[in-house]
Design a protein around this nucleic acid. Structure first.
Length: 742
DNA sequence: TCAGCATTAAACATAG
DNA sequence: CCTATGTTTAATGCTG
């Protein structure tokens, strides 16, 4: 899922980028292809949006020119009159998101702020248009002239009419009209703002420098283009519905951080343009002092120009480049600061991927498979040198690259968020499965202490605690009932556990499941497994095909399965030997080759039985201490496995187990593990069945001890056999193996 | 506080 | 004699 979504996101982004770039080039040619490019579905694509905005910008510019040409000095003009009214409207339409604290600070009054924002939007539109045109002509002046001519040629029209009209680009009319239908309101809003701006600018003209004013506007528009593009890309990235209001939707789509950053930039622009805006506002509301502002603004060299992006993409002074760089850096920092969003440590998934990618690409992360990996760029580069060249020429530090960089950051951020979500989901899934992972499974069921506990005497424990969790338990079994499930997730916690956690062992019974689930973890992590040596040894032995292992094989199993046991061999090997000798459950059988160790399951489960039969409490204690609980589970498991058909519900299983346990009063300790094994095998493996264990017992030298229990055992065994017997002849097998070997 | 268990360490025995 | 394998004892820590 993650991959898919991520891929999708990337795809979208790249397409947007392509769309933007293509649009830019296409718009230059005045072609309409760009519009169709966007979405074949008729949905408005970023490209379409851009076109639309371009048109709007043209309209606004035209108005402006007209005003200039007409000498709209009089505030009484329609435009001017409208603006005051419109401003409020637009304000109402605007979302709070559009305003940033920075802007607030800059603005004297809320209304003014609103107006400023509106103006910015209008500027962006205009900028887009102009830039597209400008891109065709390196000479701004040429553009200006051309644009001016357009404006001059045009006449003032009503808003609706404007939508349908496109200066020298009638080709856009069709799609524009469609768009218009969908976005009429939005367009109105924007156009109104444009008008307002035009009106304001008209006043500027009053000041006297029409050309200067226009240039100023151009500059502003250029400054805003960056943001505009970003917005478009973002829109694509976020996957906003085309039907949504362009600007607002874009803003909404942006994450708070991005939005903030974006508006920082905007603020910067405002700062630079502040005079103008104020002027504009003043003009619209009040026409004083514009001159001074205008003068400063008009100056193309605006020294205090704070906005890095604001620079004309075509002409980015080095100092501004530095700013751009700084800006990017700051943004990046901001991004990193947001990493907390991701549960994973920095650089886990994404970064690691990145690094690998880098390695893969050998020298440059943006170069691979002979082509440029820059988003939206697939330029073929035969070699590194060529690529570097390409990189420096096509992806230099300019507005466009910056915008793309931002988009990429967005992508990363989105992916991180996605990752976080997916991780969370995974956690939930694992938690769910582990918590009752085996519910479906017979042995897990036994976990229900309540039911089984009462039934079980010595075994009582088994269920509850036996099943519990191994690793997790390290801490302390909270609720016996659900402990059972230790999961992979818990595995991570294991490391934390104290070196000795035999305690857990008691609960660890489910070694098999635990190991099965966290196998890889233990193999690679130098973490002591939360199982007792006895449990591990037993597991190792039972896991073997013959259910018998030589000491050396046991050693090997330990080292193979646990990174932890790859060191301090002397210690743990000694412990293994000690356990093998100490516990009756481990039976040494002379083999041809020497001696092998087998498990006497009954004995193993019995381990602490002596008095257990007593009250439930006692049993419990014993169980907890001994870690018996499993036996029952194992038996049950075996039974269940063998007769799954019969055991549909856990309850049944439990009951069975409980009953059997009672009768046998056998301790189950790792029963769960036994069960687990059975489960792991896919079907209860006959070999593991209690019977076998029983046999082993016989094999052993000290069957005598069992006697008391033996009866119960035998009963159990018989029961088990009955249930599982179908396919086995285990009795024989158990002994046979050994003998055969011999 | 105590009993029981698990672990660790170590001494000792035996076989190859 | 060395090593691997087993057995046994003791000390220690933890848990209930």
């Amino acid at each position: 899922m993650m991959v898919e979504s991520a891929t999708e996101t990337i795809r979208t982004v790249s397409s947007n980028q392509n769309g933007v770039s293509s649009l830019t080039s296409q718009s230059e040619g005045g072609g309409r292809e760009g519009g169709s490019n966007g979405d074949a579905n008729g949905e408005i694509s970023p490209v379409d949006l851009l076109h639309l905005q371009q048109q709007q910008a043209l309209q606004a510019a035209r108005q402006f020119l007209l005003q200039q040409a007409t000498g709209l000095s009089s505030p009484s003009s329609n435009e001017v009159k409208q603006s005051p009214v419109q401003v409020p409207v637009s304000m109402a339409m605007m979302t709070p998101q559009m305003i940033t604290p920075q802007q607030m600070q800059q603005i004297l009054s809320p209304p003014q702020l609103q107006a400023l924002l509106q103006q910015q939007q209008a500027l962006m539109l205009q900028q887009t248009l102009l830039l597209n045109r400008i891109s065709q002509h390196d000479d701004q002046r040429a553009v200006y002239g051309r644009t001016a001519s357009h404006f001059e040629a045009g006449k003032r029209r009503k808003i609706n009419q404007r939508h349908c009209r496109n200066i020298g680009q009638s080709q856009y009319n069709n799609w524009l009209q469609e768009y218009y239908k969908k976005q009429q309101e939005q367009l109105h809003l924007q156009l109104l703002s444009q008008q307002q701006q035009a009106g304001k600018q008209a006043k500027e003209q009053q000041l006297g420098s029409k050309q200067l004013a226009f240039q100023q506007q151009l500059i502003q528009m250029q400054q805003l283009q960056q943001q505009h593009i970003i917005n478009l890309q973002r829109q694509g990235l976020v996957g906003i519905q085309p039907s949504q209001v362009p600007i607002q939707s874009l803003q909404q789509a942006m994450c708070p951080t991005d939005l903030q950053q974006l508006w920082k930039d905007v603020a910067g622009v405002q700062n630079a343009d502040e005079p103008i805006k104020h002027e504009g506002l003043d003009l619209s509301t009040n026409s004083s002092n514009t001159t001074s502002y205008t003068a400063s603004k008009v100056s193309p060299q605006i020294p205090h120009h704070p906005l890095p992006n604001g620079q004309n993409s075509m002409h980015t002074p080095k100092r501004d480049r530095a700013r751009l760089f700084e800006w990017i850096s700051s943004f990046t920092k901001g991004e990193s600061s947001d990493e907390h969003l991701t549960p994973y440590p920095k650089g886990t998934p994404l970064q690691s991927t990145h690094s690998s990618h880098e390695e893969h690409t050998a020298s440059h992360p943006l170069y691979g498979h002979g082509e440029c990996k820059w988003p939206g760029c697939e330029a073929l580069c035969e070699d590194m040198g060529q690529f570097i060249k390409h990189l420096n020429s096509e992806h230099a530090l300019d507005d466009r690259s910056t915008a793309q960089c931002r988009v990429q950051m967005q992508v990363v951020q989105q992916l991180e968020i996605q990752l976080a979500k997916e991780s969370e989901r995974l956690q939930a899934m694992m938690t769910h499965l582990h918590m009752r992972p085996s519910e479906p499974k017979p042995f897990n069921q036994p976990l229900n202490l309540a039911s089984s506990a009462s039934l079980l005497k010595r075994d009582s424990e088994p269920f509850p605690e036996g099943l519990p969790h191994p690793p997790t338990s390290a801490a302390a079994p909270i609720t016996p009932l659900r402990q059972g499930p230790s999961v992979i997730s818990s595995s991570s916690l294991h490391g934390v556990g104290p070196i000795r956690r035999r305690n857990s062992d008691k609960y660890c019974t489910p070694i098999a499941s635990e190991l099965a689930q966290n196998c890889e973890f233990y193999k690679n992590a130098d973490v002591r497994p939360p199982f007792t040596y006895a449990s591990l040894i037993r597991h190792a032995i039972l896991e073997s095909p013959e259910r018998q292992l030589t000491l050396n094989e046991i050693y090997n199993w330990f080292t193979r399965m646990f990174a932890y046991f790859r060191r301090n061999t002397a210690t743990w090997k000694n412990a293994v030997r000690h356990n093998l000798s100490l516990h009756k459950c481990f039976v040494r059988v002379e083999n041809v080759k020497g001696a092998v160790w087998t498990v006497d399951e009954v004995e193993y489960q019995k381990r602490r039985p002596p008095k257990m039969t007593g009250s439930p409490t006692l049993v419990k204690n014993m169980i907890s201490g001994l870690g018996f609980g499993s036996l029952n589970a194992s038996y049950q498991a075996a039974l269940a496995e063998s007769s799954l058909s019969l055991l549909n519900s856990p309850t049944l299983i439990n009951n069975n187990t409980g009953a059997s346990l009672n009768m046998l009063h056998i301790g189950h300790d790792d029963v769960s593990s036994t069960v687990e094994q059975v489960n792991s095998n896919g079907s209860c493996s006959p070999g593991l069945s209690p019977q076998q264990y029983g046999h082993q017992i016989h094999v052993k030298e000290e069957p005598a001890e069992l006697e008391e229990d033996s009866r119960p055992v035998s009963l159990i065994a018989s029961v088990t056999q009955n249930l599982s017997m179908p396919s086995d002849e285990r009795d024989m097998e158990e002994e046979l193996p050994t003998e055969e070997l011999e």
